[in-house]
Amino acid sequence: MSRAYNFSPGPAMLPEPVLRQAQATMLEFGDAGASILEISHRGPGFIAVAAQAEADLRTLLSIPDDYAVLFTAGGATTVQALLPLNFARPGQAADYVVSGHWGKTALKQAAPCADARIAASSEAGGFRDLPSRAAWRLSPDAAYVHVTANETIHGVEWRDIPDAGSAPLIADFSSSIASEPLDVTKFGAIYAGAQKNLGPVGITVLIVRRDLLAREGQPRAPIFDYRAQANADSMLNTPPSWNWYVLGLTVKWMLDEGGVTEFARRNARKAALLYAAIDGSGGYYRNEVAPAARSRMNVPFFLHDPALDAAFLSQAKLAGLVALKGHRVLGGMRASLYNAMPEAGVQALVDFMQEFQTRHG
């Protein structure tokens, strides 16, 4: 079997050592006599797995004790719908800084349960840049301010998210979490779907300041109450145990590789390599994002002639480079460079791009 370099935005490439370890324990986990897929989530075997995953994540991201860590089923969009239920009073304003497709999605999910307001938006410019802090119009009574740290589709990224004032800042870090050091204390809450940098699809991490959990919020079923989930160690109901297990393996792999400081170095090199190839192509390839706002994780780019897109994708696949098709919102190409993508994969893509330009230029 020959594994390709997988540039998918999610479900994304997982580290091969993690996949092999998961494969080795698929049939029998430890001395359980059964797969981890089959053992009780309330038994000591899985309780130890869950506790270790949380401890390792706290170490990886330097999460203080005054923040709870929840592992919830579903994706980031589910969290977006539950944020106002848990942290806003009925009818209370919640401010949203919209920098791309997923920022708009977060606003849409919150709208039925809060007075969701657009504090700033870069949509008029096609989401090619970030809204300047001076342009933010924050509500004095906002329950929180929401930002999307990295826009997977439009390829813009906040590297230093501005202060939000008196309201707690809540950020969707789905596609950039654990890619570089992060000061968790700047945020009231951080959440991330695991399927990009943390593990497989189907589980989400929510890191939330404990004082926010004390908010009354709005009427909601216990299963949607983050206080109840925290009190039950994320096991109010049966959790996605396999996903949680693989997430734990992925976090441990990142620690073994040197942690977020090492991945920050790797990710900076990978992004610089690809952007240099695009910018140095003489216009054959182009990225339309303002340079200061360019994402390290997701790089959308376009060929000078869209008629060549199909040939580019088919030939890239033959070269062992897959999942490069851009999102339908933008078209073109997109290369996602998450932690599991080695620099050799980006170099292979750059080499292919240069060869393709030579053949078809």
Rank of each mutant, 00 (worst) to 15 (best):
S2M: 10
Y5H: 15
F7M: 05
P9G: 02
P9V: 11
P11T: 11
A12D: 14
L14H: 01
E16P: 11
E16K: 08
P17E: 10
L19H: 00
R20N: 12
Q21N: 10
F29Y: 15
D31E: 14
A34D: 12
A34T: 14
I36V: 12
L37R: 14
E38G: 10
R42D: 13
G43N: 12
P44C: 08
A53S: 13
A55W: 01
D56E: 12
L61W: 02
I63T: 10
D65C: 05
D66L: 05
A68C: 01
T72S: 01
A73M: 04
A73I: 02
G75Y: 02
L85E: 14
A88T: 13
Q92M: 12
A94T: 09
D95R: 02
D95G: 03
S99K: 01
A111I: 06
A111Y: 03
P112Y: 06
C113E: 12
A114E: 00
I118V: 15
S121H: 08
D129P: 04
L130Y: 07
P131K: 01
S132L: 15
R137T: 05
L138T: 08
L138E: 04
L138D: 07
A142T: 14
A143M: 07
Y144D: 11
Y144W: 15
Y144G: 10
V147I: 13
E151L: 05
E151D: 11
V156A: 09
E157G: 10
E157D: 06
W158S: 00
D160H: 12
D160Q: 09
I161F: 00
D163H: 08
A164Y: 03
A164H: 02
A164F: 03
A167G: 08
L169A: 07
A171C: 13
D172V: 01
S174Y: 01
S176R: 03
A178P: 01
S179D: 10
S179A: 14
E180V: 06
D183I: 09
F187L: 02
G188V: 02
A189L: 10
I190H: 04
Y191A: 01
I203C: 04
L206F: 00
R209D: 12
R220P: 00
P222A: 07
I223E: 00
A232N: 05
D233A: 13
P239R: 03
P239S: 04
P240S: 08
L249Y: 08
V251H: 07
L255H: 08
L255R: 09
D256C: 02
E257I: 00
E257M: 14
G258E: 10
T261E: 13
E262V: 14
E262Y: 10
R265S: 11
K270G: 02
A271D: 05
L274C: 10
A276N: 04
A276S: 09
A277Y: 06
I278P: 05
D279K: 10
E288F: 13
V289F: 06
A290G: 03
R296L: 14
V299T: 15
V299L: 09
F302I: 04
H304Y: 05
D305H: 12
D309L: 12
A311F: 04
F312Q: 03
S314A: 15
L318E: 15
A323H: 14
L324D: 01
G326Q: 13
M333Q: 15
R334G: 02
R334E: 02
S336L: 07
S336C: 09
L337F: 00
N339F: 02
V346S: 09
A348Y: 08
A348N: 07
L349N: 09
F352N: 07
T358P: 00
H360P: 00
H360L: 05
